[in-house]
């Protein structure tokens, strides 16, 4: 019996009571937090006149499936957009997580000359406003021949700075004792990285992967500027189809936006297991 359970057994009622109240409070807060999501969902079933009604109709008077039909079976190939988005997000995230974790380990645990200076340079690069990167990036991509290919979106995301920074910070919270004992046992950095840090940092890696996936998935501006051919379009570009000339088809757009959120939520639910499981199941806590 672990010590935690002991505490529970000592005064089960008190803790449960507290937990129950907190659950209610948090549920309520959570529901407030996702009001925009409800709006998105309910708007996707509305007729145009109903969208701007005030006070808001949270439940549409008639469930109009038209917008969802427009998304999936209309003249736009949302299945293609989806496939493209998945391709870009999966490759980009896998690459970023791996390369980022490696660099993070280097910065966190290997003392080499100029490490701090280099890291500050990294932080500096993270501060560059993305708006100024467009023109030079475009010139480079055009030169390298990857303009209007998915590589124009994938390559820059693989070399993540925020990921390096985040995972470095997380690695720093892993006690030195663990890697030191492995070091004494004769393990090299590569072994320590693969066999100890990667499993130990599962929560961080899963978290970063989820976030990076959502950033890649929602990357609108790069896709807009660097992709021209329709068969290469991604889901966020697909949302533009619902921007009419002088108005916005809010119902259609929100139907598409709902469809676009689902994969990330799915990834989150899958990835969450690793976030939580992480340390709890390993022996670190001992």
């Amino acid at each position: 019996m672990s010590s935690q359970e002991k505490i529970k057994n000592k005064s089960p009622k008190k803790i449960n009571y507290y937990k129950l109240i907190m659950t209610i409070v948090m549920t309520f807060t959570g529901l407030v937090m996702i009001i925009p999501f409800f709006w998105m969902l309910s708007t996707s079933f509305k007729s145009p006149a109903e969208i701007f009604e005030y006070p808001i109709q949270w439940i549409p008077s008639t469930f109009n499936l038209g917008p969802h039909e427009r998304v999936w079976f209309g003249e736009f190939s949302f299945f293609t957009y989806y496939w493209n988005s998945i391709k870009i997000a999966v490759i980009g995230t896998a690459g970023a997580t791996f390369i980022g974790a490696m660099a993070a380990y280097g910065f966190a645990r290997i003392p080499f000359k100029g490490r701090n200076g280099l890291f500050v340079l990294y932080l500096m690069m993270m501060m560059v406003p993305p708006q100024v990167l467009f023109v030079p990036k475009f010139i480079m991509f055009d030169f390298a021949g990857i303009y209007n290919t998915h590589w124009a979106l994938i390559l820059p995301t693989i070399f993540t700075i925020i990921g390096v920074f985040y995972m470095r910070q997380f690695f720093l919270t892993i006690p030195h004792a663990i890697s030191e004992s492995a070091f004494i046992d004769g393990a090299g950095h590569f072994r320590i990285f693969f066999q100890i840090f990667l499993p130990l940092a599962k929560p961080a890696i899963a978290t970063f992967a989820i976030l990076d996936f959502s950033w890649n998935w929602n990357n609108y501006e790069d896709a807009l500027v660097f992709l021209i051919s329709e068969h290469l379009f991604t889901v966020p570009l697909g949302l533009d189809n619902f921007v009419m000339e002088f108005s916005v088809d809010y119902a259609g757009m929100m139907a598409a936006a709902t469809a676009s959120v689902l994969p990330i939520v799915l990834i989150f639910i899958i990835g969450q297991r690793y976030i939580i499981e992480g340390v709890a199941s390993s022996a670190v806590k001992g």
Binding site: A103, Y105, F112, K113, M125, P136, M140
Partner: peptide
């Protein structure tokens, strides 16, 4: 050797960051 390994770990990232961030900056 330690230093070399350190550089090795960050090399892929450094290359990419130089191309996609440092140069545009």
């Amino acid at each position: 050797r330690q230093q070399m390994i350190g550089y090795l770990f960050i090399l892929p990232s450094i290359i990419g960051v130089s191309i996609f961030f440092l140069f545009p900056l």
